[in-house]
């Protein structure tokens, strides 16, 4: 198990290095000179050149890459050109919205999807199964921004249970959670629908396996065979989907953040790209890559915890 974890850790580090090079290179080739962009169309060339020098854009590529990576390792992400504040501070403010929101949404979707998927699988072909599968079809089909607006309409405007948007900060955790609830539900709906379907089909696959028949021959009821033998084996594909969904939720919540006026990472990166604030773009993308890789690492470790056959392979 330790060897497995170390092996994964080594490949994780390699992925990070490759990712940092790719991100740096891609941002470099994006058209548009940040200095010219910041100064506007009427700026004189010597002013632009002076700003380029100030921003360090005239230094060689390699040394800029080294400075960027070296800074990140020490927690120094540089200073945003448009906000004039350290990127680390910008990210820190927003990650406390995006990360809890992602975790909140994922928890909701898992809490809904697991029971729904298990129930549907145990009553395959029955009314409950048909109803749940119909509901998940709908869940996958509904765009989440539209669903978000419907939620606002019902729970914020008509019932006035929640505010329609904004984020009050974590000073009052209850108020913060409340502000994140509608966005989390909007994000969780399609995820839960997909997860429930994966859970159901994975469980049904397992229920057809020989070892379920063996378990029944031992005297287990259908229910016991499902809970004790099928479920854990069915988790591998489900965990894969959960890992993918978490990564998506962290960065992909941009539309929902827009609908609910949440100061999250999605909005930050969107604004930074529009403003050619390359240092912010690079750092946020790098942070997201880091998170995705970490999530995959954790998913890999959970695979190994769930399935002894995977422990041997590093």
């Amino acid at each position: 198990m330790i060897r497995f974890a170390l092996g994964r850790l080594a490949s994780l580090t390699a992925s990070l290095i490759v990712a940092s090079i790719v991100i740096f290179a891609v941002v470099e080739v994006i058209p548009g000179d940040p200095a010219a962009f910041m100064l506007g169309v009427n700026a004189r060339p010597d002013t632009i050149a002076a700003l380029r020098a100030e921003m360090g854009l005239d230094e060689p590529l390699v040394s800029r890459y080294a400075a960027w990576v070296g800074g990140m390792v020490q927690g120094n992400f540089g200073v945003s050109w448009t906000y004039k504040t350290p990127v680390a501070t910008l990210i820190a403010d927003r990650i406390w919205v995006s990360l809890p929101l992602a975790i909140y949404a994922l928890t909701l979707s898992t809490l809904v999807a697991f029971p729904a998927g298990i129930y549907a699988a145990s009553r395959r072909g029955g009314a409950g199964d048909t109803a749940i599968m119909g509901a998940t079809q709908l869940g996958v089909a509904i765009p989440n921004f539209w669903f978000a607006m419907i939620l606002v309409l019902i729970f914020a405007i008509n019932l006035r249970w929640f505010s329609a948007g904004g984020f009050p900060g974590w000073a009052d955790p209850w108020a913060a959670l409340k502000a994140l609830t509608l966005p989390a539900i909007a994000l969780a709906l399609p995820q839960a629908a997909i997860l429930a379907r994966v859970m159901r089909s994975s469980l049904l696959d397992m229920l057809g396996e020989d070892f379920i028949r063996t378990a029944r021959a031992k005297g287990l009821t259908r229910r016991q065979a499902l809970w004790r033998h099928a479920l854990r084996n069915a988790l591998i594909p489900v965990l894969t989907i959960i890992g993918l969904q978490f990564s998506f939720l962290l960065a992909g919540a941009i539309i929902i953040e827009q609908v609910f006026f949440l100061p999250g990472l999605g909005r930050l990166i969107f604004q930074a790209i529009s403003a050619r604030d390359l240092i912010v773009v690079e750092s946020v993308v790098m942070l997201l890559v880091f998170t995705v890789i970490m999530v995959n690492f954790i998913v890999d470790l959970t695979y190994a915890a769930v399935d002894p056959r995977l422990r041997a392979r590093a």
Binding site: D210, F211, R213, T214, H229, N233, V306, D307, P308, R309
Partner: peptide, 12 residues
């Protein structure tokens, strides 16, 4: 049963 390779639960 016939197929011992699949008759056992792989995770127990």
């Amino acid at each position: 049963f016939q197929e011992p390779m699949t008759a056992l639960n792989p995770v127990q």
